[in-house]
Amino acid sequence: MRIFFTGVGGQGTLLATRFVGEAALEEGLAVLMSEIHGMAQRGGVVESSVVIGNGLSPTIADGEADIVVAFEPLEAARALPKCNPKSIVITGITPILPFTVTIGQSAYPDRDSLFGMIRPLVSKLLEVDADGIAKSSDAQRSSNVVMIGVLAGTGLLPISRGSWERALKKLLPENLIDQNLRAFESGFKAGFETA
């Protein structure tokens, strides 16, 4: 199973990726996670991947992602070359305008047409209002964990609920656990319902 993650610096992409990796490890699965550091704080694209299964390459070649988790709509579209017609794409719906757009050098594409472009090319596109779900769960800063909750809720990964929760508790400091468990829970429910 190859899961590709993409987002914008500051969205918590790497923590979310690590959450998936730790949960797989808790479940006793073979797992490798690959991340690219360096530009995370500077508004650039942040990409990472988790591969679950023995003897797999830690990077995901073009066309080889089983699942893409995009934390931002434009980045979901940019990750299309990683997909194939069987891929499942889970995307956040809140745009973060790239610098090239804010200074008027280029225009941010209409979100519905972005999703309209992605949908027929992959087997499933899940649009997740991660910010909205996080807010209504009183966990504003945990949109990234909502997204992973959705991924978990779809049941696409062979990881039990207990392993997810243990991984989250292992990863976060005590004072952040409750709100993130709420965020995960709400995401899980949303994912479960769409699956």
Partner: peptide
């Protein structure tokens, strides 16, 4: 798509 280069 519009590029998203890193920035100061």
């Amino acid at each position: 798509l519009p590029q998203r280069p890193p920035n100061l």
